[in-house]
Nucleic acid binder design. Structure first.
Ligand SMILES: O=c1ccn([C@H]2C[C@H](O)[C@@H](COP(=O)(O)OP(=O)(O)OP(=O)(O)O)O2)c(=O)[nH]1
Ligand SMILES: [Mg+2]
Length: 780
DNA sequence: TTGCAGTGACA
DNA sequence: TGTCAC
DNA sequence: GCAA
């Protein structure tokens, strides 16, 4: 519809001012504009190249207006919060955008600015992760049985010149006998009086990590107990999995460990060491009393908590594993003796020697695990700590100020100004204003990213809170690594990146050393594959998928034939019927074409309607998983958009554009409602596409725009930041003073008072998030 | 140990 | 309420 | 899984 653009341009002032908020001004796209010309001739008949840019002067005027009025409006309190938050703005920010954008539309007017390679990009996290099972299936076989990839073997044989092999107990003994004296040094002996039994990852031999740690224990005044004796030992320090730890202790159950002996992780000591620079011995020792915080096993938390802490962790495990069918099935399918699969690669190692693996000789196993944890940079058991300290000083990429997990920081694409500290070391990464460029998809750590992404997808497909958050966490690690400028070289370097913890760092190390990540194949079991297939059906999630799997279904055909008596809801039937279509992403041009059919119809009902296409389209993505359309209308003339959706849907049904309904708003007359359905271009051979309508009251348009533009991860990050600042953000607005139910959060007792909702920038500004164009709001 | 966004539709 | 989706 |  070439006409639309023109028409909109002449909108009356109120609309104009709404539209001219920065997000709607055609961007002059300073984008990287990667070479490749081959791409994306916008095939849409609607695409009209003749519609050119607006003069950008609007932008300045508008922005000025906003800031002026804004500053007077900000309450002191708010300012303070913002100022406080500004601290974390100093982080080094990088524009995370995938150089993806093709065009930014302005009410039909468009400016195309094609970008080639977006299409190849991995699907955004928001898209339903239904990778065609093929990819998984094909790859999966590979090294399931050969647990030591060739590369690894080569490596080890080449570079290991290990000192004499000793068991941990032997080494501890030796230390006690020969070296104890040398630790009279000036370090704070916060371990004085503590008798520690240390369990490393490997019971057979004391690896370099184990040795280093034992020395540290002694160095800080601890007494190492070579052989566990409950009458002597006061603390058990272990990073090993439950089973190994128990074996080392000679117990068969965690509950056999006497209650007076806290069982803690190495972190317990590590963080105490970390405090030596800051606190005196007293304080450190006091801190160390909070032993539960470092409890090695959730089940034992109570025991460690002599100071009356209680726990829910056990319960949590119970509930997740208590989902009988799925849980049991998965575990059975694994035929692994280990029920707790959360222990990461380290445990994986141990596991291998136990589980029905076409086993590998013990020696090799050991070397791998040693190698992973030590060597390279990491011989030093303090490596982690150094890395952290270093990070805090010279490396602004990671741990920064002591500001919470600044997910909020992630919201910001790049620092508006280089913080002084930042500008010095890291000028390489085109700073501040200078860098409209995403880390290229062939990122230096690409191999790592791919592996982690795969793992993330696998976890996403599983049931249970645990898996859910694990996937969430992977997302963060992945983004952090993606942004990280250098090739990661070691465990400690990985560890120094905010968002990469112990488990992930170990995985990275494995990838670096072996080029592979066994955890992937370990997780990629049959049930996960099938389950992912099922979850590709619209309306089917983890729960249903696992239910069907337990009912014996394995293929879509099984479902069609109701094998095992499974029943599909009507929505799921539609989802199944159009499985391929729905899981396909449409080219941007098609989204546009459909939209351009819809919009005029809506406008024909009421020319003052605001009808825009949102979601990935507005973010400029080259392909869209669906079409998201926002409808609202100014109320200055006393009218509203109430009822238009109903009429619009009727018309679209009639015109054969909408073909199926998936969810119909409760009350079509409300100003705010949501519709979901399927649609198609009325041309032969066209595929079904998902389409969503969202109508909102005019006053909510800013918040709605923000919400509906996404991406989802960006939204969550933004909302998280809002919370941290004491606000609450949703699709209707930004609210202040929301009181939440203590214990059992999430529940709001109070709706709060509206702070902002009419424009996007207002919300950005109050939250002190630098303005970002839709195409910059990509975090998936 | 806790929290990790916040909502609507549907069965 | 749990499940799924945005 | 990560951070606090
Ligand atoms: O969990 C979610 C999912 C979506 N959204 C918002 C952001 C998103 O951009 C918008 C539209 O959702 P959709 O699922 O269509 O995602 P998209 O960003 O448009 O990507 P796709 O191309 O897959 O449609 O709704 C959320 O806030 N949270
Ligand atoms: Mg979408």
């Amino acid at each position: 519809m070439p006409g639309t653009g023109e028409e909109e341009f002449e909108q009356p002032s109120e609309i104009l001012s709404f539209l001219s908020s920065p997000e709607n001004i055609p961007q002059k796209q300073p984008l990287p504009e990667p070479s490749s010309p081959a791409c994306d001739p916008p095939t849409s008949p609607i695409e009209d190249p003749s519609l050119q840019n607006l003069p950008c002067s609007d932008l300045d005027v508008h922005t000025k207006g906003i800031t002026a009025s804004g500053s007077t409006q900000l309450s002191l309190e708010v300012k303070e919060r913002v100022a406080k938050h500004a601290v974390m703005k100093r982080r080094d920010k990088v524009l995370p955008l995938e150089a993806e954008h093709t065009e930014i539309t302005f009410l039909g007017r468009s400016q195309s600015n094609k970008d080639p390679d977006q299409a190849r990009k991995s699907p955004s996290a928001s898209s339903r992760a239904v990778l065609p099972p093929v990819s998984g299936v094909l790859k999966s076989k590979r090294s399931r049985l050969s647990s030591v990839p060739p590369k690894a073997q080569k490596k080890q044989s080449g570079k290991k010149e290990k000192p004499r092999l000793m068991t941990p107990a032997e080494y501890a003994q030796q230390l006690l006998e020969t070296h104890a004296e040398r630790y009279k040094s000036s370090v704070i002996k916060f371990l004085e009086g503590k008798n520690i039994f240390y369990v490393g990852g490997d019971m057979q031999y004391a690896g370099e990590r184990t040795r280093g740690r034992m020395e540290l224990i002694l160095k800080h005044g601890g007494l190492l107990i070579p052989n566990f004796d409950p009458k002597i030992v006061t603390h058990i320090v272990t990073d090993a999995p439950k089973i190994s730890t128990l074996r080392a202790l000679g117990y068969s159950r965690l509950s056999d460990i006497p209650d007076h002996i806290p069982t803690v992780k190495w972190n317990w000591i590590l963080s105490a060491i970390g405090r030596t620079g800051l606190l005196g011995k007293e304080d450190i020792v006091a801190k160390m009393e909070e032993v539960w915080y470092y409890a090695a096993f959730g089940e034992r938390m109570e025991a460690s908590a002599s100071r009356g802490r209680t726990l829910k962790l056990q319960a949590r495990h119970d509930t997740t594993q208590g989902l009988v069918t799925p849980g049991a099935l998965t575990d059975l399918a694994r035929s692994s003796p280990l029920l707790n699969r959360d222990l990461g690669p380290l445990k994986n190692q141990v596991n291998r020697s136990i589980s029905p693996q076409p086993c590998v000789d013990k020696g090799k196993q050991r070397e791998i695990s040693e190698e992973r944890t030590g060597k390279n940079l990491g011989i030093d058991p303090l490596a982690e700590f150094y890395a952290e300290a270093r990070a805090a000083h010279e490396n602004n990429w990671s741990h920064f100020g002591d500001f919470d997990e600044s997910d909020s920081g992630d919201i910001e694409p790049t620092a508006d100004e280089p913080s002084p500290r930042v500008s010095q070391n890291k000028q390489k990464r085109g700073w501040t204003c200078d860098t409209p460029q995403a880390p290229k998809s062939p990122c230096v750590n690409q191999d790592i990213l791919e592996k982690l992404q795969e793992l993330q997808e696998l976890h996403k497909a599983k049931v249970g809170d645990e898996e859910h958050w694990r996937a969430y966490s992977y997302n963060k690690s992945i983004r952090a690594i993606h942004i990280y400028p250098k090739r990661i070289q070691s465990y400690s370097e990985a560890r120094s990146i905010r968002g990469v913890g112990d488990k992930t760092a170990l995985k990275i190390k494995e990838i670096l050393q072996t080029g592979d990540l066994r955890r992937i194949n370990f997780e990629k079991t049959d049930d996960v594959k099938v389950t992912r297939l099922f979850q590709g059906i619209y309306g089917v999630g983890q729960s249903t998928a696992f239910k069907w799997y337990s009912a014996g279904c394995r293929t879509l055909e099984d479902l069609r034939s109701q094998k095992g008596g499974v029943r599909l809801s009507s929505v799921q039937m539609i989802g199944l019927q159009y499985y391929d279509d729905i899981n396909d992403r449409m080219p941007r041009s098609e989204a546009k074409a459909i939209f351009e059919l819809v919009k005029p119809i809506a406008l024909s009902f009421d020319s003052k309607l605001f009808v825009e296409i949102m979601g990935s389209f507005r973010r400029g993505k080259a392909d869209c998983g669906d079409i998201d359309i926002l409808i609202t209308r100014p109320t200055d003339d006393g009218q509203t958009h109430s009822g238009v959706l109903k009429r619009l849907l009727a018309a679209l049904h009639k015109g054969g554009i909408i073909t199926e309904d998936l969810a119909i708003p409760e009350n079509l007359a409300d100003l705010e409602c949501v519709y979901r359905g399927l649609c198609r271009l009325p041309s032969p051979g066209s595929r079904r596409r998902r389409i969503d309508f969202l109508t909102v009251p005019w006053e909510s348009r800013g918040a709605a725009l923000l919400y509906y533009t996404g991406d989802d991860i960006f939204n969550r990050a933004m909302r998280l930041k809002a919370n941290k600042l004491g606000y609450s953000l949703n699709q209707r607005g930004l609210f202040n003073g929301v009181v939440r139910d203590v214990k059992d959060r999430r529940v709001k007792l109070n709706q709060g008072t509206l702070v902002a909702s009419e424009t996007e920038e207002e919300i950005f500004r109050i939250l002190d998030v630098p303005w970002q164009e839709p195409h910059e709001r990509i975090r998936g």
